[in-house]
Design a binder for these strands. Sequence first.
DNA 1: CTGCATCCGTGGCGATACTG
DNA 2: CAGTATCGCCACGGATGCAG
Lengths: 121, 121
Amino acid sequence: MRSKPDISLEACTYSHVLEIISNKWTALAIYAMEDGEIRYGEMMRRIEGISQKMLTQTLKRLERDGIVNRKLTPAVPPTTEYSLTPLGESLLPLMTALKVWADQHLDTVKQARSSYDSLKS
Amino acid sequence: MRSKPDISLEACTYSHVLEIISNKWTALAIYAMEDGEIRYGEMMRRIEGISQKMLTQTLKRLERDGIVNRKLTPAVPPTTEYSLTPLGESLLPLMTALKVWADQHLDTVKQARSSYDSLKS
DNA sequence: CTGCATCCGTGGCGATACTG
DNA sequence: CAGTATCGCCACGGATGCAG
């Protein structure tokens, strides 16, 4: 019996979720907002090593996906508050689950890597 | 008041998990193995659109991370069976959680995207 | 059958400079 | 303060050909 392809990128829904949250800075941006509203500059200061360009780009994507709310106050100087939408907050349990797995198993992964690398050297 | 960065890529453990599972074909490869051992060629046939190079590369990474087991039978022609390790199986609940979220909220994301795009056009 | 080697295009990301 | 614009690097991934 020969099988036809039954696993596709389009049909695999969790691949699409990963597209949303797997960008380099996305998880950190969400993490910065989990306690409520936060200003652009405050995020810059809290997230180590992020550039203005990447913060802007990351937030824009999240806003487009309906995960983040952008509240602009046009004054001089202007202020912008970012916060999670209900949709964004629904991601938090997922992130937590990832974190739990990480805390339990990341050491094992690191060990597997180093033993694999030492064998192949 | 916090003025120092307290969120970093290194310290954020779920960023590391994402590095493991967020490659383009990784989720699909794991998905193909969730029912048990499967041969290389069988995976090629089941996963739509994957190339040999990417399947090999994906499996190698997963093997290095201790997520996948590789059982080579050197015959003519050779056969190779891939399967999830216990560590790999511990990822399945995570994938399921992603899938559940996807099924519940992916439509909302798509709507948010199209309404965002129509506003910005 | 199960890979590895190579070329190459695309896009993510960083650094820097500029603006309302 | 909160962005935009531009340049350049490099890893990811696709296509193709070769090998044990």
